[in-house]
Every structure is written in structure tokens, then in C-alpha cells.
């Protein structure tokens, strides 16, 4: 049985005082936590909490690619994004859906520019992203988790990749949209960047934004991405700083 969610009006999504459904201001991101190395059998892993989103990413490889998927000059990156049946408010079929195939591709394309694939020719790197709990902006949270997991796996990277979704509710741009804003808002604009390089690796848009709004969205996203990036870096440092200290000592 399909459970229909009540449609919220734009006024319900954003009050006159500029307060959103979860009590945040328009330029306030959700609480963001990263834990590195949560899986012992994967080469690299990360668990990300972004608001109510709970995303687990595991990396396997690099290992020799199957003959049919080998590239002579570079490694091939495979990403599998999968939502658990209990991750949403109505049961999601555990089979791999069209949306998951599309998001796997979007996440792969967001990560690929950051990975130095030419250093590992004929090999394959597998990234498995499991959405344990979803609350809007899962593709961005998945990029954040996968990027840290790749760094944890020792994959050569130009930079970490950090992503956030900008939305539009009641004709106002808001950062890091949740599920209600995603479902009922006027636009969804996920952006992924390499923060140190200042380069955008993912840019998608659902809904309508003017040119001016797009420019402002990118600026807002940059500010949020810098703060999320700090959390990613601190999570990696938390795991590796003791190792570094013992190696240096």
C-alpha cells in the first residue's frame, strides 16, 4: 500500500521569520558528522550523518579489473548507491531501481574528477554506498561519505569531494534541503566540489532557478561545502593523527 505524504504549502516550509520546518535558518546546514574506518573488511569506509540521513560507504580495491571492463590507461571506478528497504517512510523495494542506477552514475561522475585514475591502469575500484536512513539530499551525503572512504582506502585523489544541495522554497534559496523541502520545494540544486581546488564536479537541477539564483546558489554552496569539508578533514585526522604521531616519533 502506498502511503501519500501530505503536501505542504510554501508558507509551511518557510515561515515569515525565515525559519524552516526543522527549525533551521535559510543558510544553516544540518548537523554533519563523519566517522572513518567503521568497516574492518573493506579497504576504506565512512559513516556519515547529515541531519537524519545515515549513509555508509565502503570501498574495495583497487584490484585487477575484469577483462571486459579494463581500461589500458586508467582504473575504472564503479559506484553502487543503494537504499535499504527501511530507509524511507514507506518500504522501498530492496531491488536496484532506476533511480538508484541514475544516482550511482551521478555519484560516480562527481567523484571521478577527484581520483587520479591514471595511476592505477587496468584496475577497478568499487564504491558501495548504503543509505541506511534517508531524509533528503542523500546523493550529496553519499558523495561526502564515498569521498572520505576513498581517501581512507588509500586511493590517490586530487582532493576530497564535498557536496550539498541548495533548494528553493517560498521563492527563497535555502541550503542543505531536507526531505520535506525536497518533496514540496520549488527547486533542488545539488552541487559537489573539490574545496581546495574550487572546482565543481557535480551540478544538477530539479525545478526552476533564474541565472541570478544559480549564481547565488553556488556562492551559498561554497560556504557550506567549506564547513562540511572541515568536518571530513577532522574525521580523517581523528583516525590517522595517532598513526602519524607514532610514525614521526
Amino acid at each position: 500500500m502506498e502511503i501519500k505524504m501530505a503536501k505542504l504549502s510554501q508558507e509551511e516550509l518557510l515561515t515569515d521569520e525565515g525559519i524552516r520546518t526543522d527549525g533551521r535558518k535559510i543558510d544553516e546546514a544540518r548537523p554533519f558528522e563523519v566517522e572513518v574506518g567503521v568497516l574492518t573488511q573493506a579497504d576504506g569506509s565512512a559513516l556519515v550523518r547529515q541531519g537524519k540521513n545515515l549513509i555508509l560507504a565502503g570501498v574495495m580495491g583497487p584490484y585487477e579489473a575484469e577483462r571486459h571492463s579494463q581500461f589500458l590507461d586508467r582504473s575504472s571506478l564503479r559506484v553502487r548507491y543503494h537504499m535499504q528497504p527501511y530507509s524511507t517512510n514507506e518500504r522501498k523495494s530492496p531491488t536496484y531501481s532506476r533511480r538508484e542506477i541514475e544516482l550511482s552514475r551521478a555519484i560516480r561522475e562527481a567523484l571521478e574528477p577527484a581520483i587520479i585514475l591514471t595511476e592505477l591502469p587496468r584496475t577497478q575500484i568499487d564504491v558501495f554506498v548504503e543509505v541506511l536512513q534517508a531524509d533528503g539530499g542523500t546523493r550529496c551525503a553519499s558523495v561526502n561519505a564515498a569521498s572520505v572512504a576513498l581517501a581512507d582506502a588509500g586511493i590517490p585523489m586530487r582532493d576530497l569531494v564535498t557536496a550539498v544541495a541548495i533548494g528553493k522554497v517560498r521563492d527563497t534559496l535555502v541550503v542543505d534541503i531536507n526531505d520535506l523541502e525536497d518533496e514540496n520545494g520549488q527547486a533542488d540544486f545539488p552541487i559537489a566540489m573539490m574545496p581546495n581546488k574550487g572546482k565543481i564536479t557535480l551540478l544538477q537541477m530539479n525545478g526552476l532557478l533564474t541565472q541570478e539564483e544559480i549564481k547565488r546558489s553556488v556562492e551559498m554552496a561554497k560556504r557550506v561545502i567549506n564547513s562540511l569539508y572541515t568536518v571530513q578533514v577532522n574525521a580523517l585526522k581523528k583516525k590517522y593523527a595517532p598513526l602519524a604521531a607514532s610514525n614521526e616519533g
Binding site: D43, G44, D152, A153, G154, Y240, L243, A244
Partner: peptide, 23 residues
């Protein structure tokens, strides 16, 4: 490009990063 510690070669003027994980 990796999580690791820098190693400077002052003679040859190379720098490498010794990673904590080697694939």
C-alpha cells in the same frame, strides 16, 4: 594525493607522501 606523511629528498629535490595504506 594520499593520506600519509611527507618525505623530502633534499638531494634530488623530490617529495613523496608515504601512505598509511598501500594498495
Amino acid at each position: 594525493s594520499k593520506v600519509g606523511l611527507p618525505e623530502y629528498d633534499g638531494m634530488e629535490h623530490y617529495v613523496s607522501v608515504k601512505p598509511f595504506k598501500v594498495s
